[in-house]
Design a protein around this nucleic acid. Structure first.
Lengths: 252, 252
DNA sequence: CGTCAAGAAAGTGTCGACACTATTGCGTTC
DNA sequence: GAACGCAATAGTGTCGACACTTTCTTGACG
């Protein structure tokens, strides 16, 4: 085994400034482990060793298990009764299933938004997009990803159905790792920009059919690119140890 | 030394297959607590006392907390950082959101099934329905509920997308309590039977548009009845006094 | 040599205990 | 008499320990 004794810094969302006292180990463990999964630090099909993890994160097994249980409910890992948690592999086909689900949710959200949202709410969508469209392509991948997710999440919010927001959030989390890789490939930024603009326009006109069609294409467009990205990702993960290539860590 | 006196009998719900099953405490706690929630033994907005629960179920707090974490991910309860778990209220509006999500998922599943399923798979659907349609209306509510859920889940399975199955299972679990009450009201059994038959027929013809329309109506039809049922349920739960003896089984 | 079994090691599932936070009840002050 | 703070209580978050299960190692037997 390698050097496991090192404490992996737990990343924390920058939100609260008040209560850092308790600092909720479970919550941090959840975020950290999810990050490990997303970044393939924990490899597909691999068995997760709770003791090792708890040592790495510097907490006891209890918060680790709580985090893993949550991650299991969300589909990141699976739990086999007396054998422990396993990293759920994201096969190509599993990924396609997820994208399909995403398409379903997003199209439905768009439809409901067109039917229900007030004009000024649609205006908010337009404002959101115009605000970020300027430097869009110059932003670092992480930012682009967040902005893109934000755009689609806003549509879900404007649908008026919180369940859709929740579902979409969960889906996003699960495919985020591959989207990031795909964005780094920079295959079709421009197409994406115009897609979003067109979607906004369809929304302003409350043109459901056009919007749905755009969304469907928009997402489908990424799928093919994604498949290639997935291959690259897996290659990178399982590639024997050179690691000479410049990984995408820019001052975490 | 694990001879525990079970204050509240932990029951094994035969419901639907999530992913992991086993006979350990966490699993049983999960099922039991979920049942308590479903039957309104734990009332909406109520704070859940872990110690009390653990004493009732005859296990320590650890499995209780694991179960609650899972239930939180699935939307049954909510978790406020240093204050504990709370029963998530299912307001009328929250319920409608869930039904809306269900409609979205089911219609999409039907569409995909029509596009992808082999003929013999569609035949399975028909067989499933004809096998239970005979005594349908004479079955006890729980059986009817299970059969109905099975029917819709089968459609999800035949869609070929496991994510849809998972989503639908989760939704079903959350609205099961109200569906049971509604079924006990016996408002529109016949309509439901013919609905299902019509859906099967549309499936055999691979008539997507008709099937989607049928499903939409089928589910929407139950919503109005459901709203009334929800009122009854809440009344029953919060009604003072008499509820003591026959809270549970209320056949016919 | 390969198979298998028994024991050792590793790992999960659950427990009771303790630290720290939130809430409740009480007494003081104005 | 009411608002405020302070002490006491209740409850959650986390820990280390231990029982039980699975997996690995080793050595006897065919």
């Amino acid at each position: 085994m390698n050097e496991q004794s090192e404490t992996i810094a737990m990343s924390e969302s920058p939100a609260e400034g008040e209560t850092r006292r308790s600092a909720d180990s479970s919550e941090r463990a959840y975020n950290t482990i999810r990050k490990l999964l997303v970044e393939f630090k924990l490899k597909p099909e691999e068995r997760i060793n709770e003791v090792q993890l708890s040592r790495s994160l510097g907490v006891s097994r209890t918060p680790i298990r709580e985090a893993l249980n949550r991650l299991a409910s969300e589909g990141f890992v699976s739990l086999t009764p007396n054998r422990g948690f396993f990293v759920r592999s994201l096969s190509t086909e599993g990924l396609l299933d997820l994208y399909e689900l995403r398409t379903i949710i997003e199209c439905a959200a768009f439809r409901l938004m067109c039917q229900r949202a007030e004009d000024d709410q649609l205006e908010r969508l337009r404002a959101y997009w115009t605000a970020i469209v300027e430097g869009y392509q110059d932003h670092p991948p992480d930012v682009i990803l967040a902005e893109d997710e934000g755009f689609h999440l806003l549509i879900a919010e404007l649908s008026g159905n919180p369940e859709l927001v929740h579902q979409l959030s969960s889906i996003n989390a699960r495919i985020r790792f591959i989207r990031r890789i795909q964005i780094e490939h920079r295959t079709h930024d421009k197409a994406q920009v115009s897609s979003h603009s067109a979607i906004v326009e369809a929304a302003m006109n409350r043109d459901i059919e056009r919007g749905v069609e755009l969304l469907r294409n928009h997402i489908e467009m990424t799928v093919s690119a994604t498949q290639q990205a997935l291959k690259d990702a897996l290659l990178k993960v399982f590639a024997p140890g050179d690691a000479s290539s410049k990984t995408r860590r820019r001052r975490a």
